[in-house]
Design a protein around this nucleic acid. Structure first.
Lengths: 351, 351
DNA sequence: TTTAGCACTTGTTGTTGACAAGTGCTAATT
DNA sequence: AATTAGCACTTGTCAACAACAAGTGCTAAA
């Protein structure tokens, strides 16, 4: 599996050439780039094919990288790359400074991401399975609406409005709100969810009937699965790989069902950046695509993920540093908004 | 512009045939369907073409309906159609009965719509320009979050969470909340929006600085434009008209930007159902599509719109009664949830 | 008024041949 | 021993062409 320098160089050039043109790369082209005869290149490419890094669409075509080829490239070439200062500055300018809402911040970051890369980008709100309840608020609105607000320990807020006649007598709302907090504060979402039936049966048996649907709705809130926001999907139509209606269909399916996007958030290595190339996504619909995600964390807790969907021949050299920088900035802004003290200290030291 | 019965019949058959096959309809096919010789049909079709109801893609092809052709069809053939009882029953079964949230109800209806028609469907939350404030609530969450909740007179709830250190001292939240209600209750959204700058300058000049961003965020909330939920977009990929990547691109653009979908909600005739065929949408991207919308109203106020996007050769005969029935059911459910007394009265009488 | 018949137009499909791009292998070169 | 020139071979693309199918408008007869 060890590659000598020349093979490395050839693999690198094939990948970058194919990334740029979407055309299989032949020996003649490489011979010009590398100052070797085409015959030599052919020998080397045959070797790289045997090693599993390149493949041929058909006998008389040039080579294209395999998933393993891209994987090698991402692992060996990209790691240390960063954006140029002026690229960073231009992103800084795009990210507005005075946004009070996390949601707007994240949407903005996602939009910048797709605009800068010309691929599709997305954001996923986190699964809240392993959060604990920090606070529950019940707010009566008008005559027959009740808003249930849930604050999780990672700072996430979920809310829902239920409509019903006499959902709860006015005077009971506050009392019941206190009771809920007393009972549930500090508890794990998952635990509440698992024990909701006995809870209703044992504790609420003899209270107002109207409370049960409320509790069920609260429970719904606990399990609301993550939401996905997609931007720049139409960028993808320019890609030659989506000319095939099969591939296009798969892409749209991913974008529409969003299941794969949600699932991928759950997997991944330790770092905040994860790259899934083709089959590595383990979704058949995504086998011709690459997804790169950046998990946002505050105090070690996930608070959201942004990501990029592009073709396997994605411009890794540009995209990875870009998502890294945007993700870092986003994280920084969110931490600042959250009022984390560490962040303030660091800031002061810098100035 | 008057059509004799035979022309009507021919136009009708052409439309239904083309709807079914997406292939231009020739005289031979019609001659079999109608028991007339192909030559006669050809004469009649030439007349219908002169009248603007049919056109030919090229000299040697059959005829396809023009926008005017479909318009005539929709205006003259469809109006009185309704679903069969068993079709209604099957929709009733799909619409769940015990949903407390409007949002879930609407999403459900939208999904049923696309599943039943095999086109794309969508829902648009209403513009809130002409609403008035019924209530404003400020809710402190945790240490540095504040939720702003806005209840409009049409029953719509908008809310947002802002994150900031010391956004407002605890003790002031309630006082300021009262003040906001005192000032703004009953006011028109648009008026508040237009007068926010003088309001801040005159009224809030000498109060806590942290209030200004809060007011601006409230203002944002007032103008948040409508949200769009799309379902079944991938259904559309099966359509032969989307084989052309030009058309596909336009469709995706509509789905992604959503501008056209939002705009169309604002136009339309008096009734709750509106049909926009091709150019009638006045969006170039939509000129090969038809959109049908159903405006939900409660007490004469719009509370949302559901719609269908399909090809111009949409199956009007099926789709119009379907969206009508689903829209009616949705409306009924929402009115019931809202606790309207009329609805209850009606129910009692029926039983 | 309707229809049979026919010449005409246009799009589709399949074949063929020329050509371009690229390969692997062998033998000569460095 | 590594590199390269040369060549036979494979495959995909493109343009031209012919055969054909579908449908029309028009004329003249029923």
């Amino acid at each position: 599996m060890k590659l000598d320098d020349r093979k490395k160089k050839i693999l690198e050039v094939v990948i970058e050439e194919y990334t740029a043109t979407a055309e299989p790369v032949g020996s003649l082209k490489l011979s010009k780039d590398l100052g070797l005869s085409s015959a030599t290149i052919r020998n080397e490419m045959a070797a790289l094919e045997k090693l599993g890094f390149l493949e041929q669409p058909h006998t008389s075509a040039g080579r294209i990288p395999t998933t393993e080829g891209y994987r090698w490239y991402v692992d060996h070439i990209i790691n240390e790359k960063t954006l140029l200062p002026k690229e960073k500055a231009s992103i800084d300018k795009m990210l507005s400074d005075d946004v009070l809402r996390f949601e707007s911040l994240i949407k903005e970051a996602t939009q910048i991401l797709s605009r800068l890369t010309n691929y599709a980008s997305y954001a996923v709100s986190p699964e809240i399975d392993d959060c604990t309840v920090e606070e529950i608020k019940l707010v009566k609105l008008g005559k027959n609406k009740l808003m249930i607000i849930l604050l999780a320990d990672n700072g996430l807020v979920k809310e829902t409005v239920i409509n019903n006649e006499n959902v709860l007598p006015d005077e009971n709302v506050e009392a019941f709100n206190n009771y809920l907090n007393y009972k549930l504060k500090g508890m794990n979402f998952r635990d509440i969810y698992d024990n909701i039936t006995p809870f209703i049966e044992n504790e609420l048996n003899n209270i107002n009937d109207n409370i049960v649907p409320l509790i069920l709705e609260l429970n719904n809130l606990l399990t609301t699965n993550s939401e996905v926001y997609v931007d720049g999907a139409s960028n993808m139509l320019a890609l030659p790989e989506l000319k095939k209606s099969e591939t296009l269909k798969k892409f749209l399916n991913v974008i529409e069902t969003k299941d794969a996007l949600k699932e991928l958030v759950k997997t991944g290595y330790d770092g905040n950046i994860n790259v899934y190339i083709g089959q590595e996504t383990s979704f058949d619909d995504l086998k011709d695509f690459t997804i790169i995600t950046y998990k946002q964390k505050i105090n070690e807790k996930e608070v959201g993920t942004i990501g990029i969907i592009g073709p396997k021949r994605m411009d890794y050299k540009k995209v990875i540093p870009t998502i890294k920088y945007i993700g870092d900035m986003l994280q920084e802004k969110m931490e600042k908004k959250r009022g984390g003290k560490k962040e303030n200290d660091r800031k002061r030291k810098r100035e």
